[in-house]
Simulated scan of single mutants.
Amino acid sequence: MAKKILILTLTLALMAAAGAAHAAASPEPSDKTIKREIRIGRKSAEEIEKHVPRVLNPSVEAKLSMIASRLVPYMQRDLDYEVRILEMKQPNAFSLPGGMTYITTGMLDFLKSEDEIAAVLCHEFVHADRAHGIVQARRNSRLNLLTLAGLIAATQAGEGGAGIAAMAGGIQTAMMNSYSIDLEKEADAMGIDVLYRAGYNPAAMLTMMERMNVERLKRAQYELGIFQTHPEADERVEAALKYLREKGIDIQRKDVVKMLKVTVADEKGRTRLLIDGRELFSAPSGDGARKLFEGVAKRLDENLELELAPYDIRVGGEPGSQSLIIGRSIILREDELLPGMPGLSEIRDGVMEAVNRARRGNILTDYYE
């Protein structure tokens, strides 16, 4: 299987380069090449699905189609933006010339929300929309068709370890840095714009890349699919963060990554307030406790963000009339504390710990910059 996938990868490289030979005269994507790009993409898809199982899951495919339908109106060219699923544990996604886009089961497991799925699809749609595969193939003088064709022929002829090693070298040269960093940044930035216009949280482009970068560092010796084929992760995260700020877009990650969820529950005679399933405080159950806790939960939900700095969560006021404050909002007053509840300073520490715990998966970001 590994040998077949290596051959397939080089075959797709040849196809992309063949398309580039026809489109190299124009630096901008052209509607004139759409039919040719779609033919190349469909042929590539046939080859891919001969070697990597396609997942036919109507409910998941319908969801992906729905997400795509919100993004496609903001693309510049009328391509074939069909999304298909591949059975592969590595988190990966890629688009083919003409718009056909694949996402692996590993990537779907990795993403935490519809917004993040939209971010991945949007990024890949932009690659196809801007004909980045053709642009990169045109740039890449190392992608020598005769050399790659020779490698494929040698391996198919059964030259064993030497042929496979030579082909692996060819892949390293021709495919692993498939898109230059400027093309990746363009796909990120244009993707952020499309997410915003389509009604998705544009911070999803950032959260997805932040976690990818964490995983890349944690598993440096592991084959990570998209982590290998999308290089310069640190630089891309910084560029996306800067772009969001320059556009004046509020960066709010918590809903995208499904963290800092505040709930109230009654259990064994006590009313409990929980953040991400962990108790912040509790008190004996009763109408007064339930009403107070629901009010505090609402205010926490409105004010808690992954981007909060330690000084944003504080206890202020004179002794005897102090309040727990987040930003400029009063969350809980000292005179509202019920018997059995901890003091405001302890509650403040618990809130800060919940924030820190929620963002540990994105440890590379400077939240307070």
Rank of each mutant, 00 (worst) to 15 (best):
Y196L: 13
I192A: 13
G225V: 04
P284H: 11
E279S: 14
G225L: 13
L195I: 11
K247D: 10
A220K: 13
K218C: 01
N213M: 06
E267S: 10
E215L: 12
D188Q: 09
T207I: 03
E215M: 15
G169Q: 05
A189K: 15
I226F: 09
I275E: 02
S180F: 09
S285D: 10
E210W: 01
I171Q: 06
I181N: 08
R197C: 04
K247Q: 15
L292P: 00
D276K: 09
E294Q: 14
E184C: 12
E186F: 05
A174K: 05
N201R: 14
Q221E: 14
K291R: 10
F227V: 05
E267N: 04
D287Y: 05
D193W: 12
I181C: 02
Q221W: 05
R216V: 07
G191Y: 07
D182V: 03
E267P: 01
D276N: 11
N213P: 01
P284E: 13
I171H: 03
A297C: 03
R216M: 04
E294H: 14
I249P: 04
A174S: 07
Y200E: 09
K261D: 15
S178L: 00
G288Y: 10
K185C: 03
P202D: 08
Y243D: 03
A233G: 02
A265Q: 08
P284M: 05
R245S: 11
I181M: 10
M259A: 09
T229Q: 12
V194K: 06
R270E: 11
E238D: 11
K258L: 12
E184L: 09
K254V: 01
G286S: 12
V296Q: 06
F293A: 04
S178E: 02
M259W: 00
G170V: 01
E238A: 13
A220V: 15
M190F: 02
L241P: 00
F293D: 03
K261S: 14
S180P: 06
G169C: 07
K261T: 11
M205G: 09
A198F: 01
A204K: 08
L217Q: 15
K185Q: 13
G286M: 06
N213K: 05
L273F: 00
V296L: 10
T263G: 11
V296H: 08
L292R: 00
S180Y: 08
R211M: 07
F293I: 07
G199V: 10
G269S: 04
G248E: 06
V256F: 10
G191D: 05
E232Y: 01
E215I: 12
K242L: 12
L244T: 05
